[in-house]
Every structure is written in structure tokens, then in C-alpha cells.
């Protein structure tokens, strides 16, 4: 049986992990993304997401070096996102050894990037990230871009269907309302998107305790769940979440 995936995510800026990863400070260099990736593989993570939030050209080439070093040492799939706007960016990241790229704003501005990327590099490596915020007046979720700063007027569910038809391999769905709140994923939104498309959906935003993973896998019908601070600050661990889910009857590696 195919299992549900637990995916730790971390932000990398100019070659270092940005948010403090509190629990590693003594034994390892918590700021080194490669060390952290190796730690999470050992801890039982099913996959990893590295978000490059570098703005400079030098930072970009440092990031490529990190991707190469991660490939040398980490033997689980990993996705790189952040600042991908052209076919050349996708090629460069995949060539360095990443398994998938995550595209967000650029996919909205230029949907052909999805179809051309899927055609040239394979559907499996194109992950489209969608940031959604609930609009009470419309009773629907709106797609946001530019890190949540800009609204698009597009419905998340419609956009999800569109990216799937263009050839996206997976959808990384972040609830802007829930992100950072630690009171659970947006289960309703996740279920609506998961039922609307025939490709896997990774839920993101809001994980605060192990029960939240259970909710989003069962009621939310997510195929995978992503989390950052809850793991980095050791509020729980990948192992603890997994053994809890197993006990509750969820298929887990």
C-alpha cells in the first residue's frame, strides 16, 4: 500500500538554513542545510523540501553547491523551490541533483513553464506550489503570489485543475491563513483540491501537533504533509508523528 509522506521543509539563504533549528546546535552545525538533510533522512523523513530564499547571484551558485552536496549524501527524494522563473532554472537545479523543482509565482505568470517543463524534464519533477487564502465574501480560496503579497483573483481549485491539466506532477498546497498558526492544516481546502485533481497533493501550513497530520491525511485526503518549525524546534519529531499515525491506522513507512 502506498504510504502517506511526511516532508520537513527548510529555508536556505546564502547557503545557510535561515530559521533557527534549535535542537541540533550542540552536535551538528544546524545552519548547514546538507547536515540537516542528512539528519532528517536518518530521522525517517520521506522526502525533503529546500526553499532557496536567496536574492543574489552569488547566493544562487552557493545553493547549487548545496544541492550537489545534498545529492552526494542524502538518499531520499528532495525538491528545491524558490526563485524559479525559467526553463534554464529548472534545468540547472535538476542537473545539480534535485529530484523535483517547485514553481509558484512564475507558474501563474507563465503557465507554459509547467507544460514545457513537464515535457522536457518529465511530469514527476514539476511540483506546482499554490498559496491560497480564504475569501469570506466569495466563500472561496484565492491564489496568492509573490510570497503571499499579491492576490490574483484566481480560485485555488480552478488553478489546481489547470496546473494538473498542464502536466504538473504534484501540487504543494499552502494555506496562507493557517501558515504559522500551529492550529492545524486547512483540511477543507486540502480535501477540495485533492478531490479536484488526479495528481498527489502535499498539504502545507499550520502543523502544530501530531493530530494535525492525522486530520489532513484522513479528512483532508492529502497524499503528503509538509512541516517546518514543528520539527525544527523539536515540538515533535518525524518518528513520533509517524508512530502516532501508524497506531491510528494510517499507512506510513
Amino acid at each position: 500500500m502506498l504510504t502517506k509522506r511526511i516532508i520537513p521543509c527548510f529555508d536556505v539563504k546564502n547557503g545557510r538554513v535561515v530559521k533557527n533549528v534549535s535542537f541540533l546546535t550542540n552536535e551538528r552545525d544546524a545552519g548547514d542545510p546538507v547536515e540537516l538533510a542528512a539528519y532528517y533522512e536518518e530521522a525517517g523523513a520521506d522526502e525533503l523540501v529546500l526553499l532557496d530564499i536567496t536574492a543574489s547571484v552569488e547566493g544562487r551558485s552557493t545553493m547549487m553547491d548545496i544541492v550537489r552536496r545534498t545529492t552526494d549524501q542524502v538518499f531520499i527524494p528532495f525538491t528545491v523551490g524558490g526563485g524559479i522563473s525559467a526553463m534554464e532554472d529548472i534545468r540547472e537545479i535538476l542537473k545539480a541533483g534535485a529530484d523535483k523543482v517547485s514553481i509558484n509565482t512564475a507558474a501563474v505568470k507563465n503557465p507554459k513553464l509547467i507544460s514545457e517543463g513537464a515535457k522536457r524534464f518529465g511530469q514527476q519533477c514539476i511540483v506546482v506550489a499554490i498559496d491560497g487564502r480564504y475569501d469570506r465574501s466569495k466563500g472561496d480560496w484565492e491564489v496568492l503570489i509573490n510570497g503571499g503579497r499579491t492576490g490574483t483573483g484566481m480560485s485555488v481549485i480552478e488553478w489546481a485543475k489547470k496546473v494538473a491539466s498542464l502536466g504538473a506532477g504534484e501540487i504543494l498546497l499552502t494555506s496562507f491563513d493557517q501558515d504559522g498558526q500551529k492550529d492545524g492544516y486547512d483540511v477543507t481546502l486540502t480535501r477540495l483540491v485533492s478531490e479536484a485533481v488526479s495528481i498527489p497533493v502535499i498539504a502545507s501550513g499550520g502543523a502544530g501537533k501530531k493530530e494535525h497530520f492525522y486530520e489532513v491525511f484522513t479528512e483532508g485526503k492529502a497524499d503528503a504533509a509538509l512541516a517546518a518549525s514543528i520539527f525544527h524546534f523539536k515540538e515533535t519529531s518525524v518518528g513520533e508523528v509517524k508512530s502516532y499515525l501508524k497506531k491510528k491506522g494510517v499507512a506510513i513507512r
Partner: peptide
């Protein structure tokens, strides 16, 4: 009527 591709860890 299931998700294609199969993506993830299977036994």
C-alpha cells in the same frame, strides 16, 4: 480512478 503517477513510498 486513482492518482497517477504513483508517487511515494510503497511496501
Amino acid at each position: 480512478k486513482f492518482k497517477i503517477p504513483q508517487v511515494g513510498w510503497n511496501e
